[in-house]
Design a protein around this nucleic acid. Structure first.
Length: 187
DNA sequence: AGGATGATATCC
DNA sequence: GATATCATCCTC
């Protein structure tokens, strides 16, 4: 088995959120668990640009929940939605901006538990829940590695899912995915 | 189209 | 303390 590509650096996450979102496509999300290591290839993401983005949780300002979003880049922001599903994000840009990228779908690579097309499903398949909130993605438990091979697919952008309440921000094309990939949640 | 199901923010 | 809302998923 080939050596695993290097972990993404703090500087990778510190960049502009749209750039980070696009560059995360093709990267691999890794969760080292007692039962084994689960790995999925990122095929769909959404960018949440910061406190001025009305669709972002950080638009509410600094609260206990959004604390992680306003913190330094390269940390996991995981929350429970609709009382039953977990969503995983990575914090981007320098501390204070409240920006993050939601990971929406993975193609299975190793040991995924069930389907991973959609933010709730992928969290379940990867064994990720609220306990992972505020976890450093440069640590040894949960991290992201650079693409195992060059990303050949075309990246397409569409409006984000489930943010109709956000006015004109709901229409901005801040959802990115790999065209034609069968594991995208809503092609 | 509608229900599950609990944390969060925002009122009183 | 009560209530509305929710970056979803499943079943009908």
């Amino acid at each position: 088995m080939p050596a695993m590509p290097p972990r993404l650096s703090r500087d990778f996450y510190a960049r502009d959120t749209i750039i980070v979102a696009r560059d995360l496509l093709g990267c691999e999300l890794v969760h080292v668990m007692a039962e084994g290591t689960r790995i999925g290839r990122i095929v769909e993401v959404e960018a949440y640009l910061g406190a001025h983005d009305l669709a972002a949780h950080s638009a509410k300002g600094l609260t206990p929940r959004t604390q992680v979003m306003f913190g330094p880049p390269g940390y996991a922001y995981v929350y429970l939605i609709y009382g039953m599903h977990h969503c995983m994000n990575v914090v981007t840009e320098p501390a204070g901006n409240g920006a993050a990228v939601l990971i929406r779908a993975l193609a299975p690579v190793q040991q995924l538990a069930g389907r991973s097309a959609g933010p709730g499903l992928l969290s379940k398949a990867m064994g990720i829940d609220r306990r992972h909130n505020a976890l450093d993605l440069l640590g040894d438990t949960l991290f992201i590695t650079a693409p195992a091979s060059p990303v050949a697919e075309t990246v397409v952008s569409r409006p984000r899912i489930g943010v109709d309440y956000a006015g004109e921000w709901a229409n901005k094309p801040l959802r990115f995915y790999l065209e034609g990939n069968p594991h995208v949640s809503k092609p």
